[in-house]
């Protein structure tokens, strides 16, 4: 994999740099701050960004995208970008830590987010408002859990999926109640 030309740095920006930068941008860190930390100017960043996207499109084996997902989850350990946080991003550290440590909590918020979108709400915004976890932080934790899931058996995975579905149903009922019900609640068999 290390000999894959698609994984070579672009203008000195490695895939790890690029992935960590995207994790920070997803967390509302301004692009100027990301560029400063990487020691490049914005035109260089934009070309790098364009070229990494093109590499992913040209990669029929999805090696770049898969590796990017792994690096995305390790953004906090990145030497230049790890400590970079958005000025207004006062994440609820307690909830964020629980999200990373408690699989049931992670599945519950996933279910809540899905239910929120299906109710016409902005699911990511709902989690931010109710749990203080931004989309970027959530996705970073999601990548960590994704690596755990790759190792687990069918039964375990199924158990968590069922739990997620139960929670999704609970939140869906709650959102529906708040919005006055679903479209066909009055139609009975």
């Amino acid at each position: 994999m290390t000999n894959n030309p698609l994984l070579e740095p672009i203008h000195g920006i490695s895939l790890y740099d690029y992935s960590a930068a995207n994790a920070r941008l997803a967390n509302n860190v301004p692009v100027e701050d990301v560029c400063k930390a990487l020691g490049i100017e914005q035109p260089v960043w934009e070309e790098v960004n364009d070229l990494w996207v093109k590499r992913m499109q040209e990669d029929g084996e999805f090696v770049v995208a898969t590796q990017m997902g792994n690096y995305f989850a390790q953004a906090d350990q990145h030497p230049k970008l790890g400590s970079l946080k958005a000025a207004a991003a006062a994440a609820d550290q307690g909830n964020l830590q629980q999200l990373a440590a408690d699989r049931y909590f992670y599945e519950e918020l996933n279910g809540a987010r899905e239910a929120a979108y299906e109710a016409g709400l902005d699911g990511a915004q709902w989690i931010l408002e109710n749990y203080g976890i931004s989309l970027g932080d959530f996705q970073q934790v999601a990548m960590q859990w994704s690596q755990v899931m790759q190792q687990e058996g069918y039964e375990t995975m199924n158990q968590y999926l069922q739990y997620r579905q139960e929670k999704k149903d609970e939140y869906a009922a709650r959102f529906a109640e708040e919005q006055g019900g679903n479209v066909a609640d009055d139609i009975e068999f």
Partner: peptide
């Protein structure tokens, strides 16, 4: 997403 959600409810 909301419309699809309601279709799913059906």
């Amino acid at each position: 997403a909301a419309t699809r959600g309601q279709v799913q409810k059906l």
